[in-house]
């Protein structure tokens, strides 16, 4: 089980992003973290010291646990909105 979009809410402007080589459906204005969560990714990376799994935690850009790579740049998943065709790499 994981996060999911609330049922019954209409959404417009679908966009397709690529996550670790796989196409993932998202919607304009969604954060990369949101798109990853509904696509089933709970862990986004591993902590450097012990390798423990990390994912979405503070949701507001303060903790840096949700770092992912978008188009080659390390960004916070919760603070970055999806763009059509953007390439996301999740490192775990």
């Amino acid at each position: 089980m994981t996060a999911q979009r609330i049922k019954g809410i209409e959404r417009e402007t679908p966009v397709t992003i690529t996550v670790n080589g796989q196409p993932v459906q998202a919607y304009a204005g969604e954060s990369v973290a949101a798109a990853l969560l509904v696509a089933g990714w709970r862990a986004f990376r591993r902590a450097e010291a012990t390798g423990s799994l990390r994912g979405f935690f503070c949701g507001m850009g303060m903790c840096f646990d949700c770092l992912v790579t978008v188009d080659g740049v390390a960004v916070r998943g919760c603070m970055t909105e999806v763009r059509e065709g953007c390439v996301v790499t999740v490192d775990c």
């Binding site: 979009r5 862990a43 990390r54 949701g59």
Partner: peptide, 24 residues
Amino acid sequence: TLPGVTTVGAAQLLLKGQGLLVGQ
């Protein structure tokens, strides 16, 4: 630190900003 443990505010932001439930 396990994925799936978040702050309460993070769950609210997912709900309000993204129309998403953090879990079932």
